[in-house]
Amino acid sequence: MTAQIRITRRNQLIAFITLCTVYIFLPLLFINTPYVVFIMTQMLFFTIFAYSFNFLFGFTRQLFLCIGAFAGIGAYITGILLRESIVGVVESVILSTLTVGFIGWFVSYLSVRRRLVVIFTGIFTLAITLAFNNLVIGLVDITGGETGFRVRLVSLGLLDSLPLYVRFYYLAAATLLTTAFISFYLLSYTKIGYAFRCIIDDEVSSGLIGIDVAKIKMITAVLASGLLGYAGALYGLFSQLITPSYYGFLSLDIPVQLIVILGGRATLLGPFIGSAIISILNEALKFLGPLTQVLYGLILVLLLAFFRNGIVDFVKRRIVPWFF
């Protein structure tokens, strides 16, 4: 049994290194076509968002339906601080991360400490999404309302010599791969990872064997929300334009959920596969215009009804056994 686990871990490590290599060298192939790099960078950001959602929902079953709102809060804080030249880039990104982390902690605290079930979090975070949208559209003087505002291009230090989109590509790739590596390490080698795997299987029994489920959930919420704030801020700097439509429920939450469900809940590889598929699909379906969202809703319903466990699980269960 232990040997088997070790083999899977080694395989995971190999997969991770392959992933790193691919992500580092892929943009070099397309360095002369900025559009492709732009799409790939966008894909990376969505993978990061999906990672957050995966940790919140997949691993600890906290249904946060406000991924877009959290990322948006991060982006708006950084954007406004930079526009008014109050503090520097680094400070504002840190502030975004901390603020969103705090909000995530508060929501998690409310739902976990009060022992309210999963749908409570769902309702509450959905209301946060609505409140965020209204706030952003309402406070026209500060946020620019529907049209948003532009953010000046910031210097990224050593990366400045690269073409525009490639800079942000590497920044996002570094964030994503670090996140993936840290999650991999945590899940495989530490007590927290053990607790995670117990909680995925059964919350009540993990409580009975002495795992502090509430604490794990709250820690996850802080870290995942912080990541959302950070990635949202970077996404704002990358797109150089911050408008409510970028961070809306339909434009950010739904694709992220599709990515997580398609790739596989509670898996580390899932978001990578899911986001690659969704990005390609999104480009292929561009001609449909607003109908894409109709299609996404339909795909989500079908996925949930018939393909709930995602690609990673499907491969593990149906395809791998053929070879062994």
Partner: peptide
Amino acid sequence: LALAIFLHSA
């Protein structure tokens, strides 16, 4: 939720 999104966009 997915149905709501579908109906909403449609």
